[in-house]
Computed example of a mutant assay.
Amino acid sequence: MTNTNNGHDGWKNQARRTDGEFGEKLQTPADVSIASHNNQFKFAKGSGPVVASSPMQLARGMLCASEITADDGRGKVTWNEIDFIAMAAEANYANRDTDVQRTLRWLLENRSVIDEFLTSKNITMTGDEWDNQTFTVTFPVTETEPAALAREIVASDEADYVYNALDGSGEFSVDLLRWVNGNGVRWDGVYSTRRWEEEFEPATNEHGDMVRYELLSEIPAGTPAENVWTLHHDDGDDEFEDYDGDGSDIEWMITAGYGRVNVAGYYITKNPWSPGNQPDVSY
C-alpha cells in the first residue's frame, strides 16, 4: 500500500538494515542527532527537527511524528494538527479554499464511513475541528531492544502509510474515495447501495435479498409513489457517465419514482423519498 517512489522509502529501507546512516545512528543512541526528513507535511504541521538522544526520539524525527510509544507488544505513532478538510478536498479533486463548504458537507455526510475506512487501516482520528485532527496508528511489534524496536516502528507499513498520506503521496486519497463511494455518499450526491438501503429500507424476502418487481403490474395496489424506485440500465447514452469518479461509468442506477427509460425493475422502500430527498443510487 506504499508508494515506492517517494522520499520516505529511502529512510524506510535504511531502517530495515543495520548499515547506513540511519542504522548507525540507532546503534549509537548516545550520540545526539538531529532527525528530520521533512519539516512540513502537505496536510499536517509535522514535528520539525528533533534533537534525538535515543532510538525512539530518532524514529520520531524520521516519521515527523508528534509522539511514538511502544508497550505490551504494540507500537503507537501519533501525528497532530492535520488538516483533514484539505485531505478530503484533494481526494475529490476539489480546491481546499473555494470548495470548503461542499467538502465539509461531504465529510459530515460520510463521517461514520470515513471512520470505518480509517479503522480498516488501524488509524484513529480524533479532534474537534476538521482542520485540526490527530491521527494515531497502532500495530504489533516484536522487538524489545531499543534500536531494533525503533527500526521496526519506522519500517512498519502502518506508519509508512500515514506518513505518505500526510505528505501527499501514497494511495490514501484513492483508497479513501473508493471506500466512501462504495459505502457512503459520493461528491456529486449519488448514494451507494448500502447508504440507500440504510436510509430508505427496501423490502426484502425471507433470505434478506431486496425484492425487485420486474413489471409495473407486479407492484402491490395502493403502494404510494413516494415508496417506489426504478432500476435503470445504462444503454450508453452517458446519463450516468463517470459517477464512479474514477473514469468508469455506472451501468446500473436506482432513481426515485416510476421510471420509463431503460427500466430493469422496481423496488419498494419502507421509508418514502421526498422532493428534497430523492437521491440517485449507484447499484
Score class of each variant (00 low, 15 high):
S192A: 09
P29L: 09
V100E: 15
P279G: 07
Q101V: 00
P29M: 09
L104V: 01
E145H: 10
F43I: 01
V211A: 10
R212C: 14
A94S: 08
W179Y: 13
W79E: 05
A35Q: 12
D235T: 06
G245I: 08
A65R: 14
V211S: 12
M62H: 07
A35I: 08
S156V: 08
D72E: 11
N39I: 13
D19W: 00
V50W: 07
F43E: 01
E116G: 03
L216Y: 06
V137M: 11
Y191R: 10
S33G: 02
L118A: 07
K25I: 01
Y258R: 08
A148G: 10
V180W: 00
A88T: 08
N132G: 07
P224F: 09
D235F: 02
P279S: 07
F84G: 00
D97M: 13
R212P: 01
T126C: 00
S36I: 11
R194N: 14
P29Y: 07
E143K: 14
E171G: 03
H207L: 06
W130L: 11
A65F: 03
W229I: 00
A15P: 03
L107Y: 04
S192K: 05
I34T: 10
A150C: 05
T2F: 05
T134G: 02
G189R: 13
D160P: 06
Y163C: 02
D175R: 08
V211E: 12
K270G: 02
T223A: 02
W273Q: 01
G247C: 04
Y213M: 06
D209Q: 15
E109D: 13
R60D: 02
A44Q: 02
G170I: 10
N110H: 02
P220A: 07
H232A: 07
G259V: 01
A35Y: 14
P49S: 05
N277R: 13
